[in-house]
């Protein structure tokens, strides 16, 4: 009796085929339609649309605020994950559940709530404005909204890695004479780094596309606090479908490049670490 060697899981061909078909249906076909629509205006018009001063200003706002929001979460997200994984305290489960709330909440609700808080009459806004600062209706407000919606990405990508990281390693480092900072810097951070990068990339990409929560708090002033997704909506409302998709293609391309670059960086850090380990 002949026996074929079998993988434990169903065949590679079948799963790959399913994956590709699924990806095509859900991701590639809509994206192709988007690119095609934007191509209907011709390269010269396309270039003029995507490099108009208002469009350039809106990219600065969108990418700038997204990067700052990502950076804030880059520090505070892992810290939050650390506290949730390493310490046991009353209310830990509750905080753990709270982290996912920005995922679950409709973004418009988040936007309206944040605006109510930070506007000059709001609970927080009135104190902040007493010191001469304004948050609602400025890029600072946009950054806060984006920080809110992108927080779960960093916490949730770092948390499982931290859970796998045994405290023994830290203890071993300590017995070998490493100080606390050295342990953190040389032992823990290198292990977490790929997960942190992934979380940052996801958070950034999410923030770039965010519309609902930002629109209420942004103030939407052209050249100052107008985000690129709003520019797309404005173009659609003027029945300029091709112009809207042109801006969308730029956003898409930028997000793709950012995600790809971070994937490469991640690959490189993992390789370097395994080389060091050898």
């Amino acid at each position: 009796m002949r026996r074929r060697r079998r993988h434990a899981l169903p065949g590679f061909g079948l799963t790959l085929g399913l994956c590709l078909a699924y990806l095509a249906l859900i991701v590639l076909i809509p994206l192709a339609a988007l690119a095609l629509k934007s191509a209907t205006i011709g390269p010269a018009e396309f270039w003029k649309t995507v490099t108009a001063p208002r469009a350039l200003a809106s990219y600065r706002v969108t990418f700038g605020c997204s990067a700052i929001a990502g950076a804030i979460n880059l520090v505070l997200g892992p810290l939050l994950a650390w506290v949730l994984v390493r310490y046991r305290f009353p209310g830990r489960k509750l905080i753990d559940a709270l982290v996912d709330l920005p995922f679950a909440l409709p973004t418009a609700v988040a936007g309206i709530t944040l605006t109510a808080l930070y506007a000059s009459r709001g609970w927080l806004g009135r104190w902040i404005e007493a010191y001469g600062y304004k948050i609602a209706y400025t890029p600072a407000g946009i950054t806060i909204a984006l920080t809110f919606v992108s927080l779960p990405f960093l916490v949730r990508s770092v948390q499982p890695v931290l859970e796998q990281l045994e405290p023994d390693i830290e203890e071993a480092a300590a017995t070998l004479g490493a100080g606390r900072l050295t342990t953190l810097w040389r032992v823990i951070l290198p292990t977490l780094w790929p997960a942190i990068l992934t979380g940052f990339a996801l958070a950034f990409a999410r923030a770039v596309g965010e519309y609902g929560s930002v629109i209420f708090i942004a103030g939407n002033m052209p050249m100052v606090s107008e985000i690129a997704p709003l520019l797309i909506v404005a173009k659609l409302d003027g029945f300029d479908y091709a112009g809207a998709t042109a801006i969308a293609v730029v956003l898409l391309f930028a997000s793709f490049v950012a995600l790809f670059a971070i994937n490469l960086l991640q690959l490189w850090t993992v390789k370097r670490r395994s080389a060091e380990a050898r």
Binding site: A52, M223, K235, G238, G243
Partner: peptide, 11 residues
């Protein structure tokens, strides 16, 4: 696009 409203904001 480029109408009087845009001209108000674009320097």
């Amino acid at each position: 696009d480029g109408g009087t409203f845009d001209q108000i904001y674009v320097p």
